[in-house]
């Protein structure tokens, strides 16, 4: 992968790739592996980009697909499942961010299903329902309902968590 390709095609989207990878992993080591694998796959398959969608949409799709594929592989190998939900106090990366509320939100996101994690990450990154549907490969009409359901679940988890501390 040339540094030109990395700088021009990946760096502008590095933030969201990082955010997504963090939602699928529990440790810094796993996160770095996932991030590197995503970059590698983007570089390897960029010739397949047909310009039918925006480059960013394609990058998000590859990112989510890679994260989910890696999980599936680990599941099939019956290895430690990198995104398995584990209690926040056991998550090495539960304090990855400076903002404590953000750490709690990530802990809550890690409790969602793999698809729901992808949906909510894209929603939080202010992608339109149409774009989310395109990336996930689903009907845009279902996205709104699904997001409301996910948000309600996240709120419940966060409220419960805060209730434990109060």
């Amino acid at each position: 992968m040339s540094s030109d390709f990395y700088t021009s095609k990946i760096v502008p989207y590095a933030a969201i790739i990082i955010k997504i990878c963090r939602a699928y992993t529990n440790s810094k080591e796993d996160f770095e592996d996932y991030y590197q694998e995503v970059c590698l796959q983007i570089w390897r398959s960029h010739h397949n980009f047909k310009k039918a969608s925006e480059w960013s949409t394609w990058v998000y799709r590859v990112t989510l697909n890679v994260c989910m594929t890696l999980l599936k592989k680990k599941k099939n190998n019956k290895q430690h499942f990198a995104s398995d939900y584990v209690r926040p106090e056991l998550v090495e990366d539960s304090h990855a961010f400076e903002d404590e509320q953000l750490n709690q939100l990530y802990d809550a996101i890690r409790q969602l299903s793999e698809i729901d994690r992808g949906v909510i990450m894209l929603y939080l990154e202010e992608k339109s329902y149409q774009e989310i549907a395109e990336i996930i490969g689903t009907n845009p009409n279902n996205i709104g309902v699904r997001i409301q359901r996910i948000k309600a679940r996240l709120k419940k988890i966060l409220d419960k968590k805060n209730g434990e501390f109060n």
Binding site: Y6, K19, Y35, F97, L124
Partner: peptide, 23 residues
């Protein structure tokens, strides 16, 4: 959650991409 998300990343250094030399 939208506000937490938006504010949480404002001053965060956790968004620094890992080096790819270990690829």
């Amino acid at each position: 959650i939208e506000t937490i998300w938006k504010n949480g990343f404002l001053k965060d250094s956790a968004l620094v991409a890992p080096k790819l030399n270990n690829l």
